[in-house]
Design a protein around this nucleic acid. Structure first.
Lengths: 221, 221
DNA sequence: CCGCGCTTGTGAAAACTTTCACGCTTTTCG
DNA sequence: CGAAAAGCGTGAAAGTTTTCACAAGCGCGG
């Protein structure tokens, strides 16, 4: 987008593509457990209603990993994706906000699996501090955010507070040195150049469904 | 293309565009409360780091609503977006799975606002049935899903169960007549022609952040 | 060890999205 | 009142993503 300076070799992988890579990875993990040895781009495409050429293009972003006439080795490709996505090493996560959503995220399977470790939740409410999520992740005082980030080498912050508090929480996280933020509050955060924010907005998803339903009703679809 | 006054092909509005329309709507709601009368495409663009022409194009999808030399009337545009997105009438929502995530969603502000009403949660666990979320939404028996959907005219189903159960839940919802599904389980659901599924996958979001961090480390970015 | 069926990797084409640029309308101000 | 400024709507250009189509590599059966 704004950053055009570097030689465009490998970082020109778009967000669409990396999203699909994640999906492929999930599928490969399943296939590996199911004992499959190889899979072709066509078989993958069928599972996701995609075009096989697109899958091959996506996978070609980081080298040649298939064997012509055969397909892709499941384990090898999985390892490669894990490496490409940077989840071959653990990344520590801090959740801000120990309400229902924060707690749900803390206990979410698949969050703690595959390379992400939630080190703690923090909350302003003194009643919540000192408790722990069902899976044992402690709730600590919001005041201690910066210390927690530094001592645990937190790389990813999750904002699970309401819209009003989100910008402050963002700024606190960034101030403490966090460069990647997953935001569940329905606001457009003002952020820094070096920081990546991804917002998950539930309302947008519902509204998209509503739009679809409306068009079905109107017979547009 | 049956009854609508708008001449353009309605269904050609892309998902990207409707997502942005939702974002604009959120902003307009805020501006209206702040007492703003009009806003220009440029001012909106600045807020979201978008191009003003894109905003004008997005808004032009459903007719001409701006005034040249002036901009857009905030209230009028908001009403139009509400109508376009189909949230000018209430849509009933049923959440399947009363774990942390289901409960968090049930209590989420902004879910119950603006046109969506969560009628109930359902769960297989007899211990959970009979309880209610903090905001008072009841947890009912999973067996009664079909009845609940019919009696309450549920239009949107939310899947907040684990990956294993998600496909069954999806099929049950669709079987009961639900045409729109918001899926939080990390699986690719096999679905029907007439049904719209949107999947919110937390892992994909985290992995996208991880990819960003990795590229920062590698100096690619 | 040769041909045949399968499947990758990839340029080129098609489709789609975003941005530019400019005509035209409305408001403001001298 | 007329000119300048603001700002929408939109066709055309630029850019990006997806799909097509095909040469080339691999593996197996004969």
């Amino acid at each position: 987008m704004s950053k055009s300076a570097a030689p465009e070799t490998r970082e020109s992988i778009s967000e669409n593509t990396t999203g699909r890579l994640s999906v492929y990875l999930r599928c490969l993990t399943y296939l590996e457990q199911a004992g499959e040895q190889t899979i072709s781009s066509q078989e993958l495409a069928d599972r996701f209603h995609l075009n096989s050429a697109q899958i091959r293009k996506d996978l070609a972003c980081f080298g040649e990993f298939g064997t012509r006439g055969v397909g892709y080795n499941v384990s090898r490709l999985k390892e490669q994706l894990v490496h490409t996505l940077g989840i071959d090493r653990k990344r520590n996560v801090l959740i801000v906000g120990a309400g229902n959503l924060g707690m749900a995220l803390a206990d979410y399977q698949g969050f703690n699996h595959s390379g992400f470790e939630i080190v703690a939740l923090v909350d302003r409410d003194p009643d919540k501090v000192g408790r722990a999520s069902r899976s044992g992740i402690p709730v600590l005082a919001y005041d201690r955010l910066e210390t927690i980030v530094r001592e645990n080498a937190v790389e990813i912050g999750v904002i699970a507070v309401n819209a009003e508090g989100a910008q402050d929480v963002h700024d606190a996280l960034v101030g403490a040195g966090v460069n990647a933020v997953l935001n569940f509050a329905p606001v457009q955060l003002k952020t820094h150049e070096r920081v990546k924010v991804r917002t998950v907005d539930l309302r947008i998803n519902l509204e998209s469904l509503s739009f679809f339903l409306k068009n079905v009703e109107d017979g547009t679809f």
